[in-house]
Design a protein around this nucleic acid. Structure first.
Ligand SMILES: [Mn+2]
Ligand SMILES: [Mn+2]
Ligand SMILES: [Mn+2]
Ligand SMILES: [Mn+2]
Lengths: 222, 222
DNA sequence: ATTATAAGTTAGATAAGTCTAACATTCATA
DNA sequence: TATGAATGTTAGACTTATCTAACTTATAAT
């Protein structure tokens, strides 16, 4: 049985690899996302290596073993199912669910999570548009496009966010950007890559920093 | 913010007082219910006293302060609401809910628990028939019913006794009747109003004299 | 009242997870 | 290829929560 702490390390390794696109990580990167010091991470890595959840050697890179990846995906499944529960059943806003799911994801009960899944109707995606791994630990991947790669004059739908933090989500909220909303790209400034979008009749400016954290898919216009 | 450990100590103190009927406890008793050593409890008591959650002095008895009691009742509220969720919504059996609720009761989010309460329809009692404290921390008492007025085929929980003579209590003990125990009414003899109950798989006969001295409350069954 | 037993306390050890400060290695590039 | 910056490691300290073993106080029985 893994501790909450150990679970958080494994989950962070998956997130790092998904977000950075590389399968291995460094001590400093991992420390960064966990808000811990590199020295702390180094101690824990030896333990996770001992337990065969990661592969790594002194001064080398960190890779999840298949056992480690399996564990991490289970945590992510729990996290996203709980977010869905909070959003769908308890009326939480999409920017409020993450913090509580960070706690709920560590509850240990296979029956609990499988029954929750059923109760929610086996949802495919969480309130942020992230795919929920199924009970077999399969993370069905769907091609993703970042808002920063949109083209002028075309229309898109917001499908997800790369970043779950409340402050970011609140800002998106203020901009009127929610999952499922459609917009048209009015123009892109070449010097700062900022994007002017039209959404529900209103024109809004999106900085390249924000556009790099938002997923979209092209919209077929009738 | 209290740690999970501290919360468990406070909760155990309420349970001790409710079950033993006395408002104070000793180090050994508390250690017993927490499955810890008296030495361990002694260390923690100093910390809880420092934080003003309990009153106690060296070699003396332990009493919750009103702040301590308030905290403990919040944990109990959360525990019982989660048990109700697991039972009503996720199809858990009533003997499976406790273990998972022991984990869920420590999740920190006021909004979560208040919304859960609403989602469940502000239930009054948990699947074991225990009263759920409301959001204000009030443990609303529920009208009492004597065992002599039960109906056939229904399930009940024993909630108290009208008579606390030793001989009577010893007799109840021998019958396996304790506060908190559940039973189902198998049948009622009309000529002497004696009651045949099923408790923990065993069938027991309760005379009308005894039934008139025991309080019960209906139990919801799946 | 004395003493044996039960209840309670203390000190010191251990384990997990974190930190800081000092040290070591690797890497980029001048 | 030499060297400074970035990255990674180690040692030692701290906190929380637990234990065992030894000690002290209170209580009950003789
Ligand atoms: Mn977590
Ligand atoms: Mn999410
Ligand atoms: Mn608990
Ligand atoms: Mn209960």
């Amino acid at each position: 049985m893994l501790s909450t702490t150990e679970e958080n390390y494994l989950k962070a390794l998956v997130h790092l690899s998904v977000e950075k696109g590389i399968k291995d990580a460094g001590t400093n990167e991992l420390a960064g996302v966990l808000h811990l010091k590199p020295a702390t991470v180094n101690v824990m890595l030896k333990k996770l290596r001992e337990k065969k959840y990661v592969t790594y050697e002194k001064y080398g890179r960190i890779t999840l073993t298949s056992a480690g990846r399996k564990m991490a995906i289970e945590i992510i499944r729990k996290h996203r199912l709980w977010e869905t529960f909070l959003f769908d059943k308890l009326g939480f806003d999409w920017d409020e669910v993450h913090e509580v799911a960070e706690q709920l994801e560590h509850i240990q009960s296979k029956k609990l999570i499988d029954e929750l899944d059923r109760f929610l109707g086996f949802p495919m995606v969480d309130p942020h548009g992230e795919i929920i791994p199924n009970a077999k630990g399969e993370l069905k991947s769907v091609p993703k496009q970042l808002m920063s790669s949109v083209e002028e004059k075309k229309s898109y739908v917001i499908t997800g966010v790369k970043n779950d933090e409340t402050s970011f989500l609140k800002y998106l909220e203020k901009l009127g950007c929610r999952i499922g909303k459609s917009f048209r790209v009015a123009g892109i400034q070449s010097f700062d890559r900022s994007i002017e979008i039209e959404m529900e009749g209103k024109s809004t400016l999106i900085t390249s920093e924000v556009a790099g954290q938002v997923y979209v898919r092209p919209r077929r216009v009738s």
